[in-house]
Design a protein around this nucleic acid. Structure first.
Lengths: 129, 129
DNA sequence: GTGCAGGTTCAACATATGTTGAAGTCAAGT
DNA sequence: ACTTGACTTCAACATATGTTGAACCTGCAC
C-alpha cells in the first residue's frame, strides 16, 4: 500500500547541494552523468526529488571506495524516484559485493607480500644465478 | 641475520612493466610519483629492485579500492628496497585499515537508506506541510 | 511588473592518471 | 666500431572529475 502523502516536494540545485554537502556545480555534474535525475520546470530549471541528496551521499562514499561515477550511475539506474528501502537494499547488495571484491583482491595480494614467499616475483627466476 | 645472497639483481623499466602487468609509461609514471624508486645507471637509465613489480601490483589493487597514487606513495614511503615481510605487514595493516574504514562508511550510509528512516533527509524538515 | 537571488548553458581551467610521439642517448651483440 | 632495440626527457594528448566565469533567463516577494 501507499500511505497518503501530499504532492511530493521537490528540491532545487542549491537545496540538494546543501542537503548532500557538495557544491552546486557538483550537483549539476551528477545530474549530467546520471547519478541523480532531474525533472525540469517550465522555465528549464532542475527539480529533484528527495532521494537526490541521498544518492549523492552514497555516491561520494562509493567513490571513496573506488567506484567511478559511471559505475555508480549504472548501479543507480534501476532506482526509482523516492526509492523504497527494498530498492536501496538491492543497490546496496550489488555495491557492497563490488567493493568487497576489490578489498578481497587487495588483501590477497598483501598476504602474498607478507608471506615473503616471493609469490609476486614469479618473473624473477633465480636458478640461473 | 642476513642470508648470504649475491649482488641483488636489478630490473629495467620494460622488465618491471612485464612483471607487474602495466605499460612502461605507467612504470615511469609510478617512479615519478614515488610509488616505486629507481636508481640510475651511469647512462641515466632507471634500474629497479625486485620489489618494484610487487609494489605496482599492490598499488593497482589499492587504486581500485579507492586510494590515490599520492596516498599509496605515502604508505610505501617507509618501505625499504626489497622489503621484509614485516615491512609489508606494516604497510598492509595501514592500507587495510584505510580501505575498511571507507567500506564501513559506505555500508553505514547504505544501512540508513535501507532502514527507510529518512536519516539522510534530515534537511527536509517536513513539519511545515 | 520590478528586482534580484538563484537558475541556465557553455567554454575554459584545474587536478589526477596515464599514453603517445619526437628527438636524442645507451647498451649489448657481433 | 656498428647496429639496433631499449632507454631518456619533454610536450601534447586523452579521460575522469569537478570548478569557475560570462552571458543570459526564471521565480518569487514586494
Amino acid at each position: 500500500m501507499t500511505v497518503l502523502t501530499g504532492p511530493p516536494r521537490t528540491f532545487s540545485v542549491s537545496e540538494v547541494a546543501v542537503d548532500s554537502g557538495v557544491a552546486p556545480s557538483a550537483v549539476r555534474f551528477y545530474d549530467t552523468h546520471g547519478v541523480i535525475n532531474a525533472v525540469r520546470t517550465a522555465g528549464n530549471q532542475r527539480r529533484f526529488d528527495s532521494s537526490a541528496a541521498c544518492r549523492i551521499q552514497v555516491a561520494k562514499l562509493a567513490q571513496r571506495a573506488g567506484l567511478s561515477v559511471r559505475e555508480i550511475a549504472a548501479l543507480f539506474a534501476d532506482l526509482s524516484a523516492d526509492p523504497t528501502p527494498d530498492e536501496w537494499a538491492d543497490v546496496a547488495r550489488r555495491l557492497v559485493t563490488e567493493v568487497e571484491e576489490r578489498v578481497r583482491d587487495l588483501k590477497a595480494q598483501l598476504a602474498a607480500m607478507e608471506s615473503g614467499t616471493r609469490l609476486c616475483e614469479i618473473g624473477r627466476d633465480d636458478p640461473a644465478r
